[in-house]
């Protein structure tokens, strides 16, 4: 296994550890992307993010991968810090593998964390906007039909 691959595997594993123990074997083991959307999204997105952080830093690819993972964690049982914490897990994954985190990567990880925060806030704001929209629709239907409750 290449060094990059090994680091990604460790990163994925650390992020998976943020889910309940009884769920881990499934999230880790099930390969079908439709049967295991959470595990698949994590693995796919983290692989892309690691590749870009250690490579070209393609902004668009990073934004897409980050969005997929944050969008999911923004509605799961995580507080804001836990939802974006996975970014910093990359440092630990590199150290666990036995390497040192180069200075250039350090700043890239920090930048990714800030981006993750932006995406997280964007998702949360969208959730509130969607909720308001549903309430508005409900009120409109009720008003237009003069619906009354018993």
């Amino acid at each position: 296994m290449s060094a990059d691959r090994a680091i990604v595997e460790r990163w994925v594993e650390r992020v998976l550890q943020s889910y309940p123990a009884q769920t881990l074997p499934f999230l880790r083991g099930e390969q079908d992307p439709f049967r295991n959307p959470v595990g698949h999204t994590l693995r796919e997105s983290l692989t892309i993010l690691a590749g870009e952080l250690m490579g070209k830093m393609d902004r668009q690819r990073i934004a897409q991968a980050l969005d997929a993972i944050i969008r999911m964690r923004a509605v799961q049982d995580f507080g804001p810090s836990d939802a974006v914490r996975f970014v910093f897990d990359l440092r630990t994954a590199i150290r666990e593998w036995g390497g040192a985190v180069p200075d250039s990567l350090e700043s890239r990880i920090d930048e990714l964390a800030l981006l993750a925060f932006d995406h997280y806030m964007g998702c949360r704001e969208q959730i509130f906007a969607l909720r308001i929209n549903e309430l508005r629709l409900k009120a409109r239907y009720a008003a237009s039909e003069e619906g009354e409750t018993p």
Partner: peptide, 17 residues
């Protein structure tokens, strides 16, 4: 049945199996 529930797949909460 464990991994067939959409709530389990979406929440990863074991009590949703």
């Amino acid at each position: 049945c464990a991994d067939k529930c959409h709530f389990y797949l979406g929440t990863a909460d074991p009590k949703n199996m």
